[in-house]
Design a binder for these strands. Sequence first.
DNA 1: CTGTATCCTACGCGATACTG
DNA 2: CAGTATCGCGTAGGATACAG
Lengths: 137, 137
Amino acid sequence: MGVSERDGRGAREERREAMCPHRLVLEHVTSRWGVLVLDALLDRPYRFSELRREVGKVGTVSEKMLAQTLRTLERDGFVHRDAKPVIPPRVDYSITELGREAAEQVRALARWTGARMADVQRARAAYDAARETSTAV
Amino acid sequence: MGVSERDGRGAREERREAMCPHRLVLEHVTSRWGVLVLDALLDRPYRFSELRREVGKVGTVSEKMLAQTLRTLERDGFVHRDAKPVIPPRVDYSITELGREAAEQVRALARWTGARMADVQRARAAYDAARETSTAV
DNA sequence: CTGTATCCTACGCGATACTG
DNA sequence: CAGTATCGCGTAGGATACAG
């Protein structure tokens, strides 16, 4: 196998890493599953499968994506991974101080989004209505 | 071709729209170009090409993606589009009140990311170092 | 249980060409 | 200038199988 897929991070991402590093970090914490993982871990530590179920309430996460998301967040220093050498394996994920700061902002944004949902939907309705009348089907 | 590409929104997105609507809005404002567009418009209105250049400082944005991003944000009520019926065409984009609220939070998060970049890079170095020693190349 | 390796498809997104 | 239409590549990401 090539070097490109040596870990979870895409090849594209690495190329972009050079020009604007913090943009990538932003994308990590606001990524599809990153948001949900951080939000969950803000409340308490989770085990892998537990997290999978919790996050999965919003839409199925494959093991692959969850693992990838966790690895990225761990590498960035947002999540702490505690693998206990027992059988059966048990791994606990928790949030770090750095991660907490990020997670709180992400959660705030998520909350705001929820709070303003009505406005957004009104705007969408208006937008769609305007297009429907002008664009004769 | 099918109905799927009838507008800029992806097909995948529409399927997901049913289950957790505000997650999608969150993804719109934190999307690759959404962040940059909102950030730019927070300072002042922009014309299309102007915006393309401004946003393009971070990485080339195709006309297609910029148009799509703008349409999405407009539909959600974050951006106002003012098309003047003149030749040559002139379209000004500006942020709405709703958009301003979102943009400010996004900008705060982006700033935080920039501020904490050193910590992140230290964490990454530690992570990579740990892996290198355990994984004999 | 906690992952990793592999395969495969959908689709994000950039490039190009064309329209008003 | 401000888009839309079309094409093509590469990747995100789900499903599955397997390993420790």
